[in-house]
Write a protein that binds this DNA or RNA. Structure first.
Lengths: 210, 210
DNA sequence: GTCTATAGCCGGATAGAC
DNA sequence: GTCTATCCGGCTATAGAC
């Protein structure tokens, strides 16, 4: 009936909508410099339009920011949830999760930085959104997994510990660069994953071989 | 000869200098809201002076910010270095370190937030300052400690892992509040320290008892 | 849907009196 | 050392032509 509807199936060769371009560019800029340090002028310039045109697509800067974080977070939520679906023994599953999550986290710097920024400046409402729409499912799955490995443990505490080990190495890259023993490898997904899995299985003893 | 010199020994009952008051208040405000979101007017109002008066004490906003982070970081550096001076077996020393560092980190929220902010927005110069003047000594000491526990390990990697486990629980408090299994205890220094030490000694297995 | 032009506000910073 | 008064630049956002 309506042939035009087929266009709703996105063809990557077709130029994306201006609205989407604005969001994509905003994600990068907000992640890099933070909300207050990115002006509507900066975004418009990067997109290649005038600031006034931007207000045709979004009501104001706040709205654009919210659309940007929703976009980056919800696109990630799908990938994250999928990781924990496989049927394997608990330890294998954890190993797979750590490797996959390290990979996703090291690939997507804007995602990581926006989370860091939200932890500092996000209001309660945005935090709840982030928790429920992005992390809840996989956090619950990860909690169940660590509980399976040790039925005596506090799953919330252990799940956060797993995530912290992976993310903190990436978060601290800028300062670690100046600290003793820094190697480029320390920022590579596979290297981090290997270290974290060993540490979680054995503790500090026999945790790594050089 | 000069009796007035005795005033240089600070008496806590004496009102501190305006310059010091400005720094103290700036630390709190910058930590809470970030550099760009705190205006010179905000700071002046909180101090109880007019914005113009502030420029008698500091050249500009940047200079005031730098003085603030130097103050908060260098005051912490002393406390941190002291922790690793005791003579004890490696494991005891690590346990002591974890408990002390958890305590210091959970007590001083501005310190933690300013580090988080610097990780996101600090330039290379400030990062180098932070590394060399604040963290270098104790990071080296912590590296040696984990190396003593496992001579085969990568000390840089393990030292960061120790720090990550302690700090990430505190950093993620706002979102953890909305995640399953959250308890108030999870933010208490001693509780975190106990969990981290167990995890580092044993891995995920037998890491905690509820 | 994008433009030019501009309103209106708030920020950092300075001059100069007291 | 602190004040009042003020400059000026950058910011978000709107009006209205094309």
């Amino acid at each position: 009936m309506n042939a035009v509807k087929d266009n709703s199936v996105k063809d990557k060769s077709v130029k994306e909508s201006t609205r989407q371009t604005i969001i994509d560019i905003s994600i990068k800029l907000f992640a890099q410099s933070g909300y207050a340090n990115v002006s509507v002028r900066d975004i418009a310039a990067a997109v290649g339009i005038k600031p006034a045109s931007l207000y045709y697509h979004f009501d104001n800067k706040q709205t654009l920011y919210l659309a940007s974080i929703k976009e980056v977070f919800s696109s990630k939520a799908i990938a994250l949830t999928e990781i924990l679906q496989i049927q394997e023994p608990a330890e294998t599953k954890l190993k797979y999760y750590i490797y996959k999550f390290s990979e996703l986290a090291s690939e997507d710097e804007p995602f990581r930085r926006l989370i860091q920024r939200e932890m500092l400046d996000g209001d309660e409402q945005r935090m709840q959104y982030l928790a429920e729409k992005v992390f809840q499912d996989q956090f619950n799955a990860l909690s169940l997994l660590v509980l399976e490995i040790d039925p005596q443990c506090d799953p919330h505490l252990n799940a956060i510990s797993v995530l912290s080990l992976i993310l903190y190495h990436l978060e601290t890259t800028p300062i670690r660069y100046f600290l003793k023993g820094y190697k480029k490898q320390h920022n590579q997904a596979e290297f981090i994953a290997q270290h974290v899995f060993n540490l979680l299985m054995n503790g500090l003893l026999r945790s790594d071989t050089l």
